[in-house]
Nucleic acid binder design. Sequence first.
DNA 1: TTGAAAGCGCTAACAT
DNA 2: ATGTTAGCGCTTTCAA
Lengths: 353, 353
Amino acid sequence: MSREIRAAAGAPTLEDVARAAGVSRATVSRVINGIRNVDPAIQEAVKQAVEATGYAPNRAARSLVTRRAETIALVVSGAADDSEPERSAFAGRVFADPFFGRVVAGVAEFLRPRSMYPVLMFAETPADREQVVSYLRQGSADGALIVSTHADDPLPALLASAGLPAVLFARPSTPLPMSYVDLAHRDGARLAAEHLLARGCRRIATITGPLDLPAGQERLAGFRDVMARNGFPHVPVAEGAFDQESGEAAMDRLLTEDPDLDGVFVANDVMAQGACHVLRERGRRIPEDVAVVGFDDSAVAPACRPPLTTVRQPVEEMAAEMARLLQNHIEQPGRAEALSVIFEPELVVRESA
Amino acid sequence: MSREIRAAAGAPTLEDVARAAGVSRATVSRVINGIRNVDPAIQEAVKQAVEATGYAPNRAARSLVTRRAETIALVVSGAADDSEPERSAFAGRVFADPFFGRVVAGVAEFLRPRSMYPVLMFAETPADREQVVSYLRQGSADGALIVSTHADDPLPALLASAGLPAVLFARPSTPLPMSYVDLAHRDGARLAAEHLLARGCRRIATITGPLDLPAGQERLAGFRDVMARNGFPHVPVAEGAFDQESGEAAMDRLLTEDPDLDGVFVANDVMAQGACHVLRERGRRIPEDVAVVGFDDSAVAPACRPPLTTVRQPVEEMAAEMARLLQNHIEQPGRAEALSVIFEPELVVRESA
DNA sequence: TTGAAAGCGCTAACAT
DNA sequence: ATGTTAGCGCTTTCAA
């Protein structure tokens, strides 16, 4: 009824199981690793012995010989000056945007059936980045999934030149021989612009993401593209930083520039939420006076009042694909070529537009 | 100028460094692990050799002999029926509340100076829990930090009976010989009630957390305590589930029960945000008509309109303390006794009350 | 199909 | 202060 499970101290080893089953270590190893060519009877005996001894294979010993950690790192990578005073809050700031939670969820979901779990790393300073490289070089993880928060993040290049397997979320701002997943940002922005136009808006502005980020540029480009094609060669633009505060400030500027605007495309949901607050404080009804379209379809979108119409980015699937790509690179060291997988966005209509 | 760093395949070993420095493996090991009793000159020579060869110690080899993974698991643990259809979204749902991001940030912050990084695990089904136990028994991690989302989470007991080092966030609902950190929930609720009373509210209601959770019960108890002492033996109560939707529903019920209420204490910020939405939709001004006090001081509190007055829970520090406690248990296997560290909450006054 | 044996790279006695 | 040596627990040729 009660299985004997000895404490970690004198944990049973392959040797113990072998003795209990009356076979050799090699044979036990074979059945544990599911290698065929093992007599069914012996297989059964071994399984019983495993059960009886409460055996659990030792990860370190296995890794030492297979040269695989069976672990991957998920690193959120910033690029602050060393001087930045409040660097310690980086990890905290990161999760203020539900976006990163979705990345974690997507990766974890993909890994779980493989009995793997991501190691979470935050890298902001040069020292942090060295730590990430060290971690991988020590074989603590077989590869890394990188999500950069800044355009000039040096980590991807560092990893590339060290020949360490890595996959990026979003195209790097300077070309690199690395696989990445990304979204068709332009298409997403087009969806937003067309929706705003279709519902009758004629004085439309946009709040962009950081314009040094490809995602920021492309969402703007796609938006402008549609607007220009529809007879609006000039649209008011305010740059934000993907956080709520900058969204509020940007909305403020836009409203000053054109008090009569009737539509805004905001480059992410968190900023859109901020924009909505400012709009309502200035007495605008949403969407009657001003229609708002966000981007991401993160947790804040449905939580907003009114619920946000937004462009869905399938972050979880993108994250899972990242993990899949990384797996390939790990399994074929050097052999696998750098790929990019681009996902299509989708308009999610709620009430804000 | 350019350091030679060979690919992982033929990575340099201690032996290589020893040869390059003209000493023995043991000596190199000593300087790498910072053990004294090494001639400064030789120390220097070894460091140069390390640099020259691009040596990085192999984690698996080290773990095999030290019997330490130098890794800890951070597990978010639910307790769904196996039948639950949408279990796959667990990881995603979890991060919808900024609370968990703060836990991660606090743990990561504590670990980083030690060059350690948390392994993130989500456990919802019995199979998931077995995986967690396996992971630890294999020595993949030295111990676990558990954050349960349900009162009847079986994982802590599982870990305890397996003799695996673990520390909990929040007191388990059934006593267990395990260390945990927690908040003085009653005190926090008292702060909220007193603040509401002090600003003149006289028809005060509360939205609680799940009442099978000690945190839910105690926040309610502390609140009732102060109310009763001030001449309000009966207060309207609506139970929520710590998510925004249930906060909205609860506020709805409360408003139906007493349309004239002028204050609400809500057991967390996410529900408070939902409550605010409903209140405004029902034409109440906040705080003029109805004052609202939340709990947590999570990222949604300042992001709310109006910004939420709330009871601060120092989640990051609590998480760091969890890690510290776990470290002790790991370093003194069996020896360290189960401790509990209780943190004091603090009222953060913003604009909602 | 199974067993014997050689390491994987490192740390930690122990000896010098 | 330094070197020698014996494993840590596992996988994987190689023989039988």
